[in-house]
Design a protein around this nucleic acid. Structure first.
Lengths: 193, 193
DNA sequence: GCAAATTAATGATTTATTCAAG
DNA sequence: CTTGAATAAATCATTAATTTGC
C-alpha cells in the first residue's frame, strides 16, 4: 500500500488546522477576504496540504452552520418558553442562593404558545432542521417546582448509599428521548452541541 | 444546630450521581434545558441530596472543562510542531481554482490577519502548566514555542519554507481591528473602520 | 500511622461574547 | 446603536487527595 500517494479527493484538515481555523473564527473573523485567505492558507499549509479554496469554503460552511445551529437553539427556547419559576425559599438554607437563577429561568412567561410566533424566516429555517434535533422530554413543564420536590432533605447525607450498581436504565434512561441520537457520529467528532 | 452533620457549603455528589451524569453527558446531552434539568434532578435525588442548580452547574463545568482539556491537548500538539511555515505557492494553484475566486477576489482589504492560536487564556493556561512557552522574550508575543523538531507527517515533503520566511508574527497580529466589524463593508469604504 | 500542610479537582460566581430584535 | 437572552470563559472558593514531618 502506498500511504502517501492516495491523493484524497477532498481536503482533509488536520486537527491543528481545524483548531487554528476555529480560533480565528472565534476571534471574530467570519468572512475572510482574499488576502486574509491567502495568509491563512499559507500558514496552515505548514500543517498539511491545503489550498485557498479550502479555507474559503471552511469559513463559508462554518458560518452557515453556526447560524443554523443558533437559530435552532433560539427556536427551541421560544417553543418551550413556558417554564416558569417562582422564587424558591432559600431561607431553609442559610445561604441565599445567589445569582444562579439569573442564568436560565425567569424570563417572562405564562404558559403561552403551543405554537410559535413564527417570524417567517426563522420558522422556515428551523422547520427544516427541527426533525433532526433533539426532542423535548415533556411539553411545557415548569423549571423547578416550589420548595418541594427538587431538594431532598436528607440530613444524614451518607454517601455510600448502598447502591453500587447503576440502575440507570430503569430509573432514568440514559438514552432518553431527549438525548440526541448523534452520539459518536462520524464527522467532525464534537465541538457542537 | 445539627450536631450530626455540618451544613455542607456545596453539593457533594455521590459516585452514583456522578456516574449517571457522566453517562448522560457521554450520550450526547451537553446543555440540558430547564425541563431536562428538572428530570435529571428528580431522578438523581434518589441517590442523595441534589438540586437543579447542581445539575446545571455540573453540566456547565463539565462541558467547559472538557473543552479546556481538549484544547490543551491540541495546543500541545501544536507546540510540538515547528512554527516555521512553508510557503504555499499560491500562484501555482491559482489557475485551476475554478470559480470560487470570484467570490472573494473583489474585496480589497488590508493585510491583516486575525489573532491566531494562542488565545490568551490558552496561553496562560498552558504557560502555567508547561512553562515551556517562553513568551514575550523580545517584545512580541510568540504563540508557539521554538521547537524545531520536524514532525510533519505529510507526504508533501517539499519545503519551500526556507529559513527566512518566518513572518508569523507580522502576519498574525494579536488583536486586529476588524474583528468586530466585517459585514458593514460597503458603508465603510475602506479601512476607516 | 496520623494530622498539618500543600496541591489538585471541582462546585459555584462573575464577567465577556454572541447573535438577533427593537 | 442599544438591549435581551443565553452561554462560554474566567475566576473564586471549598472539598478531596496527596505529601510531608513526626
Amino acid at each position: 500500500m502506498s500511504p502517501s500517494s492516495i491523493t484524497p479527493s477532498r481536503w482533509c484538515p488536520t486537527p491543528e488546522q481545524v483548531m487554528i481555523l476555529e480560533e480565528i473564527y472565534r476571534n471574530g473573523l467570519k468572512t475572510p477576504n482574499a488576502t486574509q485567505i491567502q495568509h491563512i492558507t499559507s500558514h496552515l499549509s505548514f500543517y498539511g496540504k491545503i489550498e485557498g479554496k479550502n479555507v474559503f469554503y471552511w469559513f463559508q460552511n462554518h458560518k452557515a452552520r453556526d447560524r443554523q445551529k443558533l437559530r435552532r437553539k433560539l427556536y427551541k427556547q421560544l417553543q418551550q418558553h413556558h417554564f416558569f419559576m417562582k422564587r424558591q425559599r432559600f431561607d431553609d438554607h442559610q445561604h441565599d442562593h445567589h445569582h444562579f437563577f439569573q442564568y436560565f429561568l425567569p424570563h417572562h412567561v405564562p404558559q403561552l404558545l403551543p405554537q410559535l410566533p413564527s417570524p417567517s424566516s426563522l420558522q422556515r429555517e428551523v422547520g427544516e432542521e427541527e426533525a433532526a434535533t433533539e426532542v423535548e422530554g415533556g411539553g411545557g413543564r415548569r423549571w423547578m417546582g416550589g420548595d418541594e420536590g427538587t431538594t431532598v432533605e436528607e440530613e444524614d447525607g451518607e454517601t455510600t448509599c448502598g447502591n453500587g450498581t447503576l440502575r440507570t436504565l430503569e430509573l432514568f434512561p440514559v438514552r432518553a428521548s431527549w438525548v440526541k441520537e448523534e452520539e459518536g457520529t462520524s464527522g467532525n467528532g464534537g465541538w457542537g452541541n
